[in-house]
Design a protein around this nucleic acid. Structure first.
Lengths: 195, 195, 195, 195
DNA sequence: AATGAATGAGCCTTCATTCAT
DNA sequence: AATGAATGAAGGCTCATTCAT
């Protein structure tokens, strides 16, 4: 009998190696061999488990989004007010797990790939829409008719801060990013709420 | 008989073809032949003028940044107050020339490439720093110690709104994007500097 | 505990799966895995029993030829005259067992492989020579000096009718093929030996 | 300016190299590199001109069939009676150009490929039907109701003699093959024509 | 006996780049 | 100046074969 149950182990190793390799090099131009080597196996085996490079990429993207989704869900579970729900999303977006340069870089690359790949785009939209919907819902309860504008503004600011990280320029700690967002939240809600 | 002055014409045609091709396909994975064909010449000639694909990309990126820089400079020239200077930058960022999907898409792709290419990164930073510095300077005059936070927030929001355009999702007109930014500006300055 | 006597069962299953797979796909471009799967086992086991793909093919070819040889031998055993011996070979060649599309297709593929593989060629020749010799012997008794020509003609016609079956074009029933051959036999012998 | 008009030269060289390579090795398992090398160029160039291996094979097959078709047409043009038309087809099939071992072997391999490839099958059928129809037409004029049987028999015999050549066994000169066929023609028509 | 894991060689194909004309 | 010819390196993918269990 061969070693049993290697499949989940191998798949997982490949997914992580894919993210690391893409993140480190800062591009989707990585070869299957590079990824396989980093995951400690031959390129043939990588194909055995994933069928194609494209499917490996898809699995890696799904993994990143799943992690993010879990982080958001976890944070939302503890929020007790609309305001706390918004803050939960902000904090989840900049949690240590998400804000690692390598992770951010891989994310950005998949983000760009979504322009070209229908699959990637669909996947991305599902998560974006979910977060956006949460934000909008919360804002509607506390910001009235300005909800849409605030949702758009906050979401854009999150993306902007997040993505800038990938450039490794203007380096900001997660905390600093959260501060910027909180400041936006404070001032915009202060105006909405009559003094 | 050599046609005199062909060089600038050819180079310009190639730069524009590069941007169009990348923008249309949504990826840097375009071939020199595709670009050359779109520019109405052979791939050999493209190499003759640019030496390498990488240099063609660099020229295209420089072109985009130059256009943007000119737009910003033009807008700044007419601004008469710090607040107007900030608004000028916002409007320049979402002027029709910059906000064309094809342009945005090409920009995003170069943005990502900056992670990998030292040259691209340097180029990008020069322009980013210039704009950032303008913003910061203006905010310092009207927002005091919150200037840094506001600069970061506004810059991030610009990037976020801009880049989202590339995904062709959550489509927003330039006007809507400017509205979101203006709203941010209003609320955050209202708090700092009661009118 | 090892099941005793599995070897012949496994080998036989693989040989039949090889023929079916090749016959169905119409090409020798089948993988060991496909064959093993059809035979209900892993590819590793197929190698365990045959050592290599080539040897599996050889066994399959040998199997086809053995079946054909048995069919011919059985038919010859009942023949009582030269003419009947020739007819026996004709009928054996187009017996239901031999004329199945799948079988014909596999045969044709091995036929072609004989150009490349010394082993396959040798195997094929042994059987061809045997049949040819039987035909020639019979013809010599009833067609005199035209025996060689008739042998060649009849053998070629058998091959031609047989092989055309593989193309699944100009479909002819076994009976129709036999009719054509019998007609040839009738006319050519009528001339040689007026009844 | 580059060397002009290389395309037809290169394509032709590749088609001939394809036939030679397949014919010599006796199998379609030849690599593009082998073919390109034999044709005196790089594999990249072969792809440049044909796009894919499959299309190279198709061109080679078409070439063989075109040559054969031309040979048949030429021979038919000079025939003055039904009998002569039949003989023309026989002679064309075994003309020196067609009967070269290498040519025969390549033909056989394409013949087999027609089982798998729809394109190859279609191509082959077009030529087969044309020849078959010529034969049938001629036989109807001189053999009455036995025309179909004779057409089938003769066509099968041609195929059988031709294909056997590929095995390089039972080697027969073109002349000998023609003799066998002529003998069939003589005897079968002698019977049809009342003595 | 039997399996799934694992490797690595080899093939098709693409493409930046160079070159002869 | 300009072109199409030409190369060759590199990558994705397949698959026969081997191996540990």
């Amino acid at each position: 009998m061969p070693k049993l149950g290697m499949e989940p182990i191998r798949r997982s190793a490949l997914v992580e190696a894919t993210i690391s390799e893409i993140g480190e090099r800062g591009t989707l131009d990585v070869t299957v061999s590079q990824i396989a080597k980093r995951a400690g196996m031959s390129s043939g085996l990588a194909h055995h488990y994933f069928g194609s490079k494209e499917q490996m990429f898809a699995a890696a993207m799904r993994h990143i989004l799943t992690l993010y989704g879990a982080e958001v869900r976890g944070a939302l579970a503890m929020a007790k007010s609309p305001r706390e729900r918004i803050e939960a999303i902000i904090r989840a977006s900049f949690g240590v797990a998400q804000f690692r340069p390598e992770m951010v870089s891989a994310w950005l690359n998949f983000y760009v790939q979504a322009q070209k790949s229908e699959d990637a785009r669909r996947l991305l939209h599902i998560y974006q829409r979910r977060v956006r919907s949460n934000l909008h819902h919360a804002f509607r309860q506390i910001a009235g008719e300005e909800a849409l504008t605030l949702t758009r503004g906050l979401a854009a600011m999150i993306d902007g801060l997040y993505i800038r990280q990938a450039l490794r320029a203007d380096l900001m700690s997660p905390g600093a990013a959260v501060d910027v967002l909180m400041h936006y939240l404070d001032t915009s809600l202060a105006k909405s709420t009559p003094r």
